[in-house]
């Protein structure tokens, strides 16, 4: 199996790019930010405040808040609950994200 984004049995809508850490990343209309990133094969969404540990999606239903990222300038936004939109600027969050806001 090569692709994480399945092609059989589904028709997706329009494509567009989001900007993840300065790089363009392909997204389909309707996908969450978390889905777009996981589909690309990347898992890291943030690094923790105390230990700098990598964290990714855990519950994917908005309960655990592990997937928080800096999205369009706001830190602590849940990637699993946020729909990707054209040109959305998404950054890996470091700690509480104060230093990630330009």
């Amino acid at each position: 199996m090569a692709e994480l984004r399945l092609v059989n049995g589904v028709r997706r809508g329009k494509t567009f790019d989001i900007i993840l850490d300065g790089q363009a990343l392909l997204a389909y209309e309707g996908e969450t930010v978390a889905a777009v990133i996981l589909a690309s094969g990347r898992r890291l969404l943030r690094l923790t405040r105390k230990r700098g540990e990598p964290r990714s999606v855990f519950c994917n239903i908005g309960v655990c808040y592990e997937c928080r990222m800096v999205i369009d300038g706001s830190p602590n936004v849940r990637a699993c609950q946020t729909r990707a939109s054209p040109g959305m600027v998404v950054n890996t969050q470091h700690g509480l994200g104060e230093d990630d806001i330009a």
Binding site: M1, L4, A34, A35, L38, E53, R55, S56, F58, C59
Partner: peptide, 24 residues
């Protein structure tokens, strides 16, 4: 807490609603 460790329900919703498979 390692990336790649998910809840089963989370993996299922990724698959059901987004047609994305969490891993290989």
């Amino acid at each position: 807490t390692l990336p790649g460790v998910f809840t089963s329900g989370g993996v299922q919703s990724l698959l059901k609603a987004q047609r994305i498979v969490a891993g290989k």
